[in-house]
Amino acid sequence: MFFAWLGRILAILILIFALFKIAVALAIASDVLGPYDAALARYFPSAKSTGQVIDKGVYAVILSIALGILAEIRFTLRDKVMS
């Protein structure tokens, strides 16, 4: 039961941070946060481009969805076993 709750909370947190990362990368790409190179170096120093940041964000979104699905399966199985 503990791991199901932990999985659900972790899935939500990963989703929030991944969407924030994608939003910041899109803002950098559209020069909202300043010049492209300076903003990329400031917010994502290890990234080579905003495309790389967006890719990692999309991977994190997919991971959070998969983790959320697994947690929901666990809750559904628990409810079926209990009844």
Results as ranks from 00 to 15, higher is better:
L19V: 13
A27S: 12
V24P: 02
A39F: 02
A25P: 01
V81Q: 12
A38Q: 11
D79F: 12
I22T: 02
M82L: 12
F2Q: 15
I54W: 00
K56T: 11
L70H: 06
I12P: 00
I62D: 08
K80W: 10
M82P: 02
A66F: 15
T76F: 10
K21I: 06
Q52D: 04
G7N: 13
Y43Q: 07
L40C: 05
F75T: 10
A18V: 02
M82N: 08
S64D: 04
I9Q: 10
D37N: 08
R42T: 05
I73S: 04
A39C: 01
V58L: 15
L33Q: 01
L63W: 04
L15D: 08
L33V: 05
L15Y: 10
S83H: 09
G51S: 09
A27C: 06
I28T: 07
R78M: 05
I16G: 06
D79Q: 13
S64M: 10
T50Q: 10
I69H: 09
G51V: 03
T50I: 00
M1A: 15
I22P: 02
I62W: 04
P35H: 07
V61E: 03
R74W: 13
I69R: 11
A71Q: 05
V61F: 03
K80D: 05
Q52W: 10
M1V: 14
L70C: 13
A41Y: 03
A27N: 11
I12M: 11
I9V: 14
L15E: 11
I16Y: 13
S30E: 08
A60C: 05
T76S: 12
Y59S: 15
I22C: 01
V61H: 00
A25I: 02
L19A: 13
I28D: 00
D37H: 08
I65K: 04
L33S: 04
A47K: 09
D55P: 01
I54H: 03
F44L: 04
S49H: 04
I54V: 15
A71S: 14
W5H: 13
R8E: 12
K48E: 09
R78I: 07
Y59T: 11
L67I: 15
P45K: 01
L10T: 12
S83D: 15
F17K: 09
R8I: 05
G68I: 05
Q52N: 01
S49I: 06
L10H: 09
I62R: 07
K21P: 03
F44V: 03
S64V: 02
I16F: 03
L67S: 06
V53R: 00
A29T: 11
R74L: 13
R42I: 01
S49K: 11
V24L: 06
A71K: 02
V61R: 04
S64P: 04
K56V: 06
A25Q: 10
M82D: 13
L13H: 06
V58P: 03
F75I: 07
I22H: 12
I12Y: 11
F75N: 05
